[in-house]
Computed example of a mutant assay.
Amino acid sequence: MLESSERIEAKMASTNISAEHITKVYQARKKQTVAMQDCSIQILENEFVCIVGASGCGKSTLLRMLAGLDFPTEGTITVNDKPVTGPGVDRGMVFQGYTLFPWLTVEQNLQYGLKLKKMPKPQQDEIVDKYLKIIGLSNFRNAYPHQLSGGMKQRVAIARMLANSPEFLLMDEPFGALDPITKARLQVFLREIWRELRPTTVFVTHDIEEAVFLATKIYVLSSRPGRVKAEIPVNLTYKRTLDLKDTEEFYAYYQQIEKLIQEN
């Protein structure tokens, strides 16, 4: 029997990530650019949250602040009730660009963080084998990134992040550069990983269809300066296949979000 996102949300225990009244101002010589203003979001344990909005609304800026790679001008960001002061091993990040080490094989890329932790080799091998199987690339363990397709590279990047057991996955348009067919396949792939492992996930995208397909909750940001225009729970089937995109229920969410973005 399939579970709905409403039932999953009932299991969520607490707020894991909180951004309260975030304002971000960039200073360039005598000019100030307000990227975000009074933006607040709450992300609960095990949620899959997508952040959408027009280009330049601050989606990636907000994600970078959650990761500790940038900081708000005003407001507070906490993870598990602790202020974010920089990057942490509890937060893994995947970018749109392919960030694999080109001089390392697939297996070595997955091992990289585990070696930094000084994990015993047998345990490293067990974890690498597990994630190579999950991403379906066991036969490519000795391949180098230049020998992989774009979709394969992103699967490896996701697996490398997961191998380090982060509590939170932060993803900045990771499928944005892929062709539509590969992108759709990786959406299913990521959703299945989330169903199995249940990491708390924050996913930035400009693609409304992608957001509706992946998310349990969507934040819609206004045009610059970015503010939260709407918080939308996505009460669709828990197990999702690409056929879901052809349903009236799916299209209703799409239209609602598209209208909110166009109203900016």
Rank of each mutant, 00 (worst) to 15 (best):
D70F: 06
Y98F: 15
F95T: 11
G136A: 11
L116E: 13
G136W: 07
D70E: 15
L116Y: 09
V94L: 09
L132V: 08
Q96Y: 10
T99P: 00
W103D: 06
D70V: 06
I134R: 11
V79Q: 13
L114S: 00
G136K: 07
G97F: 12
T105P: 02
Q124I: 14
L100N: 07
T78H: 10
G97Y: 15
T105V: 04
I135G: 12
L66S: 04
P122L: 05
T99G: 12
L110Q: 02
D129H: 11
T85Q: 15
Y112T: 12
Q96V: 10
M93C: 09
K130P: 00
M93P: 02
F71N: 06
M119N: 00
L110V: 06
G68F: 11
G75F: 10
V94M: 13
G86N: 05
L114M: 05
K130L: 15
G136Y: 09
K82R: 15
Y112G: 06
V128E: 01
V79R: 12
R91K: 13
Y131F: 15
N80P: 01
E126V: 04
G75P: 02
K118A: 11
F101G: 04
G75R: 08
G86V: 03
M93L: 15
E107R: 14
W103R: 07
L132F: 06
Y98R: 09
I134Y: 10
W103P: 01
L110M: 08
Q123W: 00
N109D: 06
D81N: 14
I127M: 04
Q124Y: 01
D125K: 15
G97H: 14
I127R: 14
G86F: 08
K117D: 02
G97L: 12
G68R: 03
V128K: 01
E74I: 08
D129Y: 04
D70R: 05
D90I: 12
D129N: 14
Q124W: 00
L100Q: 10
W103Q: 13
E126R: 13
A67R: 00
L110I: 05
P72T: 05
T99F: 07
K133W: 03
P87R: 02
N109L: 09
N109M: 08
Y98I: 12
I127W: 05
G97V: 14
N109T: 04
Q123A: 13
K133L: 09
K82G: 01
N109C: 10
L137C: 11
V79L: 13
E126S: 15
P87K: 07
P72Q: 04
M93G: 10
Y112V: 05
G68I: 02
